[in-house]
Design a protein around this nucleic acid. Structure first.
Lengths: 316, 316
DNA sequence: TAACCTTATACTTATCCTGAGCATAATGGA
DNA sequence: TCCATTATGCTCAGGATAAGTATAAGGTTA
């Protein structure tokens, strides 16, 4: 590599790397994530010599722990666990996280894999039925108190502005992509269990299941990435069955985005982009007028490649 | 971490991690990257125990090697060098790459840091003066030959379609964001030195400076990221001096994007978004009508936070 | 000094995209 | 038959965008 000074003993800088997966599926209009350890952890394990690549290692761990094979995978983020171990001399540990998309399927018997609804971990993120009450009842007053507790007036203002932007307060609109920013804000304000656990003081009064280590933060990163990505890449289809109605597709998008979309506009956008084609069959066992069944046109991946796809999730 | 089977000896899975930086500046309308080792490598070095975090480590290496402090930094990608070392039993090495943005400045005396124009490494990426001739003269015929050399007719078609999409051939429009895809295509087609070096056969006929290891690929990743990001986040300002004219700003954007933009529309967009404010002064020593000087309104970062910024770089 | 070159800056226009709503169609059940 | 429910077609207004025209304000040069 570069001509740079190195320590003589390279083994001194040895570290270990953990591979962590945010594996997502959507069932019956609910977004799910694969969890282990009684729904308190994401599938994960160390990168080992036997693994030919990082993704290979990740796939091995997820299959071993959940019995579920990985399909579409993309990298999320890499970070070093710092200060977690009290010993500063202890070997560093790096976590490399991935986002995976599949269809929910049978989890192997005896495995500890379990599908959990992701809004159990982030109840403030589900705005499909309007702004969840806990934001006005719990989050907002607590954040206001946190802002007020800052030393200077300017810091108080800055804190509140940040809270208002991330949670869409004071006439601001809700931005569903700010999942990570909201999580980090709640952490800093010591309103969630992880913050209290990591030796901060606070109440942890905001509802929502916690996870071990940084796993809930990683999950937030994954959700944010997915919410951003469905707007310009046809990744939703990775989560759909082979055939589906446009309403089912819409419900999946809404489940991920945590907000509703205008039905007619949604159909217009999907159809004019030629993302789907009719199968010829109709949906059975439905209420109301039967809907046409569609399938994803795999051709678009080749035709337009990475070029893009739009979903009506922009403003309001 | 998770309750999963682990090897008893954790040290067995020890690896080393390299930190690599794509450090960008724009001077006189030309995009530059910081290089070392006679412009054949990016600043990099191993993550060591002394480093409190990955970014800390990165900053330490870049400053040590180039004398240039790091400003804005974001993570790019993490990958494992596989198959590079002949020995499959050798410890794994991971590279964690970052994108950094600064203003060009004095490189410390005696350091090996050097600013290189990034189009020296990717001559086919600069479309500011129209499509560069080497695309029609060299790239296109070579890719066509590569496509034809595939076994089946369908594979030939698929190869050519991929080439046409990434390089904007056959009436398709050039998409400046596909930097990485283009690099990887040229690699697969064995048209660049890295491919030949890595034990593929081929001619390496496409002009452009190569780099050691995966560094040119990492650079491609960084350019792609930056080209995508300037369209929706006000990151260009990290590369600008404190005061600048709108044309200077435009030239910087064009330098990064590798294409020109409509001057009037550019100004309209910048001004209506209130990204900048007049300093009151005018630019001196210029040809033509003197331009107003502007400065970046730092307020927008707080006000709109991550919400976004647009630049007229969409189609055409 | 006047023509002209260069850049700055203000407006105009046609087109496309987007959000939102109205209207109608096709089912099953009360 | 009426109604609830979902599907599907269509319109319309406002905003954003691409592209072009026109004018202003400097310096340079014939």
């Amino acid at each position: 590599m570069a001509k740079v000074p190195r320590k003589a003993e390279t083994s001194i800088d040895a570290i270990t790397a953990d591979l962590v997966a945010v594996l997502v599926a959507v069932t019956e209009g609910e977004p799910k994530i694969m969890t282990i350890a009684n729904a308190t952890a994401l599938p994960s394990g160390p990168f080992q010599f036997g693994h030919r690549s990082l993704q290979t290692g990740l796939r091995a761990w997820v299959e071993a722990q959940t019995g579920h094979p990985l399909g579409y995978v993309e990298q999320l983020y890499t970070f070093a666990d710092h200060g977690r171990t009290g010993d500063a001399r202890a070997p560093h540990r790096i976590s490399i996280s991935y986002l995976g998309l599949t269809r929910e399927d049978q989890v192997r018997e005896g495995s500890e894999g379990h599908w959990s609804g992701w809004y159990e971990y982030f109840p403030w993120e589900d705005h499909r039925a309007g702004t969840p009450p806990l934001i006005a009842k719990i989050v907002t007053p607590r954040l206001r108190a946190w802002a007020k507790s800052a030393e200077s007036t300017s810091m108080q203002k800055a804190r509140w502005q940040r809270a208002a932007i991330t949670f869409g307060l004071d006439d601001r609109t809700w931005n569903e992509e700010l999942v990570l920013q909201r999580y980090e804000l709640l952490y800093e304000a010591s309103l969630i269990p992880e913050a209290v656990r990591d030796e901060r003081t606070g109440d942890a009064v905001v509802p929502g299941r916690a996870m071990i280590s940084d796993h809930r933060r990683i999950l937030a990163t994954g959700i944010a990435r997915l919410r951003a990505k469905i707007k310009y890449r046809p990744v939703v289809f990775e989560l759909m069955p082979a055939e589906f109605t446009l309403l089912q597709l819409q419900r999946s998008v809404e489940a991920l985005a945590g907000r509703t979309v205008h039905k007619q506009n949604f159909r217009r956008l999907i159809e004019q982009q030629e993302l789907v084609e009719e199968t010829g069959a109709m949906a059975a066992d439905t209420v109301g007028r039967p809907a046409k069944l569609f399938r994803f046109r795999h051709g678009v991946v080749a035709e337009r490649a990475v070029v893009g796809t739009k979903l009506p999730l922009s403003r309001s």
